[in-house]
Design a protein around this nucleic acid. Structure first.
Length: 574
RNA sequence: GGGCAUGUAGCUCAGUGGAUUAGAGCGUUUGGCUACGGACCAAAAAGUCGGGAGUUCGAAUCUCUCCAUGCUCACCA
């Protein structure tokens, strides 16, 4: 059995909307435009479960006092089963109270189908693609990278839960100068491992990571000195293979996977890159020049005098500050051209929603790509780019900067070793992507109260403990009378109902951090209640005990649900 | 200088125009353990929501301006 409950704020908003329409039909309200209806929990619990302020917003256009408008709307509102009362409060709020029996019935829903609680149908029948991580295989995943990785995976999960058919994609380039440097670096390590004295030619381009020394040894074990006269290419291939193995292994450790690995090269193999340029040319958005059109600065022109013409994209026609180069004067495309081709490819694959997780430093790039897509006549609307701000890693109160090339490891792998996948997932998720994230290694490592992860998981553990005890005592929840549940339990169940709205908001706004926050709030509602609502207190009435055990069965399902959506584990004991 | 963000309690941060009193966690102070696991609970102190002006019935939220911080403004990827 699968229940699909709809988010309650939206249900109430549509009830209010219908009521206004009804009142307009009877002439009690003039046919003014109906504003967006915001439904929120009131500040004080006595004021009801949810309230709408629309009467205040409409009062002016309607020409009546807000209180009167609220009364008219309330009079026309339908009252479905889950609502026990609709009240009007000054200065013009419409407050809704839930039926307590209906709230109690949530216990049954959570017990029988907790694993689908909060599943919504807003994306049903739609295909979404989430592209994230997309790191070139030049090194292991760093902590900086992992923020986007976790966010991308979390967004993918939320979209799945809200009905979308989701594909996770990893876009990479294994052909650039960086990869060549990586191969060359491994070649040098290989020769060194064979006992040759090889100087490092260009320290800036050399990858100093110690893992390359290990790979060099592996290569010797595998092939001996057969590669001693080879150029960088076989080394690059070997390094790439090992890097991808490493990246995928790290992903797996933290619960991330990708369905599709898309190599930028295929855009060249199929000619897509040049087709894009051609089409842009046909549409008149390309010009060949040494400098930007309109750039008359003598110094710039003088500097560019020895350059051959490049191919420029008239992105200024789409609001850009300046035109961008798509093909360099040496005939090679810039990164932008294949990137536009890639987005065209994605759009042509027929997705309804294309989410792309990028660092904030790629903002301009993403804008230009969007303009390119537009210039080609595609609707860029399905493309939604989420930019994550930087992660600054702090250890012992000091900034901890890493560089893949130097081989200083602030790797995600190492951090998983030090803490846990759960802690990392939570820490990287519980901040808005817009905010700079300070990742304190000491806090992440600590297994103390600083760490909200434990607080949340401990709620699940406590429920498990109660149910274990019930099992040991042979008490079942069959025939539990839910009407015995009291205010504490009802308030907790009210909090559970908010999950529906949280999921909808997270899905629509692509903001899974609100779920992480919600999980903490839920735990925060749980623990104080747990102290008061005891199942095995001395002399407890057996019927009340049954009801409370049913309640804790539901509560456990709720915590399991929210932790699962966040990609975290649900320990039985800690 | 332009663009995109950020600035809210001692710290880390939520807060998609609403309710005389702006929230959470941590930290601090005080109190509570025969315990379904105390990795807990109860209570308290703590804020001119960066400054200023404006918009309206009402602003942390919208507009303008100033200040501070981060990222970015390549024929790099």
């Amino acid at each position: 059995m699968r229940y699909i409950l709809k988010p309650l704020t939206r249900q109430i908003a549509s009830l209010v909307h219908e009521a206004i329409q009804n009142a307009q039909q009877t002439g009690e309200l003039p046919p003014v435009e109906i504003p967006d209806i915001e439904v929120k929990p009131p500040r004080k619990a006595e004021q009801g479960d949810y309230g709408a302020s629309v009467a205040l917003a409409m009062a002016k256009s309607v020409g009546k006092p807000p209180l009167e408008v609220a009364n008219i709307i309330a009079k026309h509102m339908n009252k479905p089963d889950f609502i026990s009362a609709i009240e009007v409060a000054p200065p013009g709020f419409i407050n809704v109270r839930f039926s307590e029996d209906w709230i109690r019935s949530l216990v049954t829903i959570l017990i029988t189908s907790g694993e689908t609680f909060g599943k919504l149908d807003i994306g049903t029948g739609k295909r979404a693609q989430v592209e994230f991580l997309s790191a070139n295989p030049t090194g292991p995943i760093t902590i900086g990278r992992s923020r986007g990785a976790i966010l991308g995976d979390a967004i993918a999960r939320v979209l799945e839960e809200t009905g979308y058919d989701v594909e996770r994609e990893y876009y990479f380039n294994n052909a650039g100068a960086q990869m060549r440097n990586l191969g060359e670096s491994l070649r040098i390590r290989y020769l060194q491992a064979l006992g040759q004295q090889v100087d490092i030619p260009d320290i800036e381009k050399f990858y100093q990571g110690e893992y390359l020394i290990d790979y060099a040894k592996e290569l010797i074990a595998e092939k001996g000195d057969a590669l001693k006269d080879a150029d960088w290419q076989p080394f690059k291939e070997y390094a790439e293979k090992r890097m991808f193995e490493w990246i995928k292994e790290t992903c797996q450790r933290i619960g991330i996977h990708h369905d599709v690995f898309f190599n930028e090269n295929t855009l060249y193999d199929t000619g897509a890159v040049w087709k894009v340029l051609e089409k842009l040319q046909e549409r008149g958005y390309i010009y060949a020049a040494v400098t930007r059109e309109g750039e008359t600065d003598a110094e710039i022109i003088a500097k560019s005098a020895d350059l051959k013409p490049a191919q420029w994209f008239r992105s200024t026609q789409f609001g850009d500050d300046e035109d961008r180069v798509l093909v360099k004067s040496n005939g090679e495309p810039t990164y932008t051209l294949p990137d536009i081709a890639y987005h065209v490819n994605k759009i042509e694959r027929g997705f309804d929603l294309l989410v792309n997780i990028l660092g904030a430093d790629h903002f301009t790039q993403a804008q230009v790509v969007r303009m390119g897509v537009q210039a080609l006549g595609y609707d860029p609307k399905p493309i939604r780019v989420v930019h994550v701000q930087m992660v600054s890693v702090v250890r012992d109160g000091k900034p901890f900067k890493g560089s893949t090339r130097r081989g200083i490891f602030d790797t995600l792998d190492e951090l998983i070793d030090l803490t846990s996948a759960d802690a990392i997932r939570y820490f990287l998720l519980h901040r808005s992507p817009d905010s700079h994230l300070k990742f304190d290694i000491n806090v992440a490592v600590s297994q103390s109260n600083d760490n909200p992860v434990y607080y949340i998981q401990y709620a699940h553990v406590r429920c498990s403990g109660i149910l274990r005890e019930a099992g040991a005592r042979g008490v079942t929840i069959d025939g539990a009378d839910l009407s015995l549940l009291g205010t504490d339990e009802l308030n907790f169940l009210r909090k559970c109902l908010e999950f529906l709205d949280v999921m909808q908001t997270a899905s629509e706004n692509l903001t899974p951090h609100t779920i992480a926050f919600y999980a903490l709030e839920l735990a925060n509602a749980f623990h104080p209640m747990y102290d008061r609502v005891r199942a095995f207190a001395d002399g407890i009435d057996p019927n009340l005990q049954k009801a409370r055990l049913a309640f804790y069965t539901a509560t456990k399902a709720m915590f399991k649900r929210v932790l699962t959506v966040l990609g975290m584990t649900t320990p039985e004991r800690m």
